[in-house]
Every structure is written in structure tokens, then in C-alpha cells.
Amino acid sequence: MKAALAQIFPRLADVPANLALHERSVNQAVAGGAELVVFPELSLTGYGLMESVPDVAIQLDSPTMRDLRQLSRAAAIVVGFVEEAPGARFYNSAAFVDRGEIVHVHRKVHLPTHGLFDEGRHFAAGDRIRAFDTRFGRAGMLICRDFWHLGPAYVLAAQQIDLLLVSSASPGRGATGGDGRFQSTASVDLLGDVYSRSFGVHVLHANRVGCEEGVTFTGASEAFGPAGNRLARARDLDEDLVFVDVDPDARRTARIHMPFQRDERPHLILRELQRALAERTQPGY
């Protein structure tokens, strides 16, 4: 299976313009042979929305989602959007859409609200980390900060995923390194390497580019094979579309070689977690 990472520069709070951008990217990816196109976090809206979150939100049965479902007849897509759920709750969501159907929606679980981030002010936090089946294998989606915390990827791995699909809008922080890249980019690299290696999965990570409110998103979208081997990397800072061959046999080989997934002991981990959390409530902890 060939996948594409669509490293785009969305317009801020302009859904029609971004929908057109998605159509162009998918067409280009399909022309290159891609069957799956992964877009960045909030690819349909841009990132720094502030009070315009409700204005750009869409419901799963909305005309925009109908257009995306139509687009998914050309290739499966992972798209980032603001989801409006009943009760005026707004989620930073990613949808896996394929063959005209919404296969799965992930609502961002970890909303960074510190420093330059203010997501907890504008979004409701997701409360599920669920794997789902696709025609390319079992998959899980994470959105940006979900990927930095170790828990969500572990929970997906425990559901025996093959593909870890990550959508990001990662702002560059720290320019003192000397290797021509932001320090935050190096951290993201490291996580993709570790997760693919430790869980024996393919990691497909689309990050956005462009400047918003003076903040520069770093690009360098990348794909890792199941032994921690980098399969593709997009350009730093500029728009790009990169292709990656996702070979199921490579996962089999990697898991024979290093059977981390087989040898995981999730029950033991769960038991110890429960004990540790119970002890936290005891006096003097």
C-alpha cells in the first residue's frame, strides 16, 4: 500500500478554501498512486482559531463532511477538523474516511493549555482511545500532543494496531540547536522512531507548515517502518507531499525479529498502574 503525507499550509478559519486544498492534495496523491492520504491536525480549519472555534465547527452529518466522504472515494483520508457534538461541545478531531464512509473519529485527548497553547480553553477533551479496522490493517489515530504522552500510543498498541496515524500542528520552539532545525522537531523525530520500534508498527505522521500569528509550524512530516527505520521525510518548513510504501510483510519480519508486541504484559502494567494510582491517594504520598 502506498500512503501520502500531505504537508499543507491551511488558511486560518476558512473551511471552504481548505476543503479545496484537500481536494487538490488528494488528487495529487492519487496521481502518485496513494491509497491513503494523511493530513495534519485541524487541516480543515488551521490551528490558532481562538473564539472562531464554534464558527468553523462541523457536525459529522454536515455538507462539508459529505464532501470529504465523496473525496474519500478516490483515496482514504485522515482529516483534521473541529467537530461539533451535541450540547455545544467542540472537539479537536481527526476522521478516518474511506470509500464514502466515516470509519472512525478520534477526539484529541490531551489538549495542551500552557505556554503558547490554549486548547483547553476552546475545546472539549476526548475520552476515548480506540483502534479501528481499515482495509490496510488495524489502525489508531493520535493528534499532536496525544503523541507526546506515552499513554495513548501504548493503549493503541495494546489493541494490536498495525498503523499509527498521527496528525500534528507542531509550532517550532527553540532555535539554539545548530543543526538547522527547531529543538521541538528533534523531539517529534525521536517519538516516531521509538513508537515504531517499540510497538512494531508503521508510524505515518503528517505535520503542517506555514506561519500563523508569528508562530512557524515545522513540517518534516515523516514515516517510520516497524523497526524504527525512517521511510520518508518531508521538507522542513515548506509545503510538501511525500509518498511511502507501507509493507505489511515488514511488520511481520520486525515482530519476528523483536517480539515486543507479543511480549508486552498489559495486565501486569494495568495492575501496577492501579496500585500506583491507589497509593497516590494515601496520606503522606
Binding site: R11, L12, A13, D14, G48, L49, M50, E51, S52, E212, E213
Partner: peptide, 8 residues
């Protein structure tokens, strides 16, 4: 509170 880059 809206971004300066609102709808651009």
C-alpha cells in the same frame, strides 16, 4: 478573542 490572522 480572535487571531490577528483571522480568515487569512
Amino acid at each position: 478573542r480572535y487571531p490577528r490572522d483571522w480568515r487569512t
